[in-house]
Every structure is written in C-alpha cells, then in structure tokens.
Amino acid sequence: MNRKLLGRTAAALAFAAALAAPLVASAHRQWMLPSMTVLSGNDAWVTVDAAVSNDLFVFEHVPMRLEGLMITGPDGEKVEAKNQHTGKYRSVFDVQLAKPGTYRIANVSDSLMVSYKIGGEQKRWRGSEAEMAAAIPADATEVKKTNSVRRVETFVTSGAPNDVALKATGKGLELVPVTHPNDLFSGEAATFALVMDGKPAANVEVTVAPGGVRYLDDRGEMTLKTDAEGRFTVTWPRPGFYWVEASVRGGAPAANGVERSALYVGTFEVLKE
C-alpha cells in the first residue's frame, strides 16, 4: 500500500482497494450519474453524482475521488466543475453547459501498479512513475509493473449534439460512439466502438447493466463482445440509465517491462420517445 494513503480516511483506503482490484468479478462498480443528459434552454446545468458501489446507482459504499476529473466542452475546451463536494457515500459536482453541444465528463487516472517481494513478503504499491524509484526497495524481487489507465465517464448535451468532445484521446481504453451517446432510445439499437490506445479493441467483453434494479429480482445485465473492429451493438430493453464497462489486461509487455491494464466505464441515459 502506498505510504501516502495511510494517513487518509477509511473511505479513501476502501476506494484504493476497489481501484487495485478492478478485474475481480466481485469488485465494486465505479460510476458517474448526471441529473439529466438531454437539455434545452439558455442556462442549462447538470449535477453529477460519482460513487463506487455494488448496486447501480445506489450510494452505499464509498465516494469516487475526483482527482482526475476532466470535463470537455462542445468546443473541445476544458470546463471547470462547480460546487464540488465529497461526502461519506458520494462525490457531487455541478457543470454549467454554457455553450450548446455535447460535454464529456470523465474521471481519468493513469498510474503504475507494482507488485514485488521483499523478505519473502508480497507487497503492492501504486503511484506515478516518478515516485516509483523512491518507493520500491532496491533489493525487491519478482518486481512486476503494470500501467493502469482508468476512465469513468458520462455525456450530456445542451441543444443540438456534436462530436468534438467525443474524440478519443488515444490513451487507455475508450469508447468511440457510432450512435451519439445522447441519442439513445428504448427499443432501438446503439453501436459503439472500443479503442485501446486509439486502436480497435477486438474481442473484448462488455458488460451492460441497467440501473434501478434495487427493486427488481432480475438484474437484467447483458454481456457482449466487441467484433474485429472493436464494435458492439446494444438494443436497450427499456428507458433508464445504463452502466457500460469493459477492461483490457495483459498483452505483450512494453520494452520497459511494464504491462498494460485499462478500464472503461460509461453511464448512458436511454430515453423513451
């Protein structure tokens, strides 16, 4: 465990644990939930909840920390979050949609995870590449480095949608919309592509889970797989918010011996016409 985390709250520790084990089936889910995704008028705002939980979209575990919050406006410029607050179970912030078009609201992290043995004991460390040299003892053995890029995001549109903010950054696992993420309707099919470092992510498993299942017996989750072009198509069974998650791990280690791991989570609202 990173020494810097020891002084922080239990919530932060729990969140670090959730981050450290994203590929375990039982891992808590990270999500952002906007108050609305399709808006009209001259003074449009959304408020966004960000949390980590088992049930979607219920505040019951820990808040999402927003160090990597990155909001991109319809002109590609950065937009500042307002009224940011982190409580016991959720973080909250507001976004003013001052210009018409589509906004991408993302929380992105890019860090290094290192597992190693020292004195026969298994250790894990998480931090930035710059901090690594000082953090890992020189006599550590079985050192395994993994670069972990995570993106948790959602989209909102004021007025007519556009696609400037939707362009992939080329780093980590990203979703490139074929169907606009704010033009999703119950009973219709939507197609998206997953890209890893900007290249099609073929044969990747995608989980699509509806929110609001707290009052239902059937969780209604769908498991899909991307095709050779990294594309997958979802037909939304009913209106509501959906959580879409995919992850990629492994592959050939890069020249510096660092393995890759990437997580994508998107929240999408499906409307009824």
Binding site: S40, G41, N42, D43, A44, E273
Partner: peptide, 11 residues
C-alpha cells in the same frame, strides 16, 4: 426567460 428549459420534455 427560462421557458426554453422544458422544450426538451416534448421528447
């Protein structure tokens, strides 16, 4: 001047 806020409700 907030009348346009609810135009989107005519989905």
């Amino acid at each position: 001047g907030e009348g346009a806020t609810w135009l989107k409700d005519m989905r």
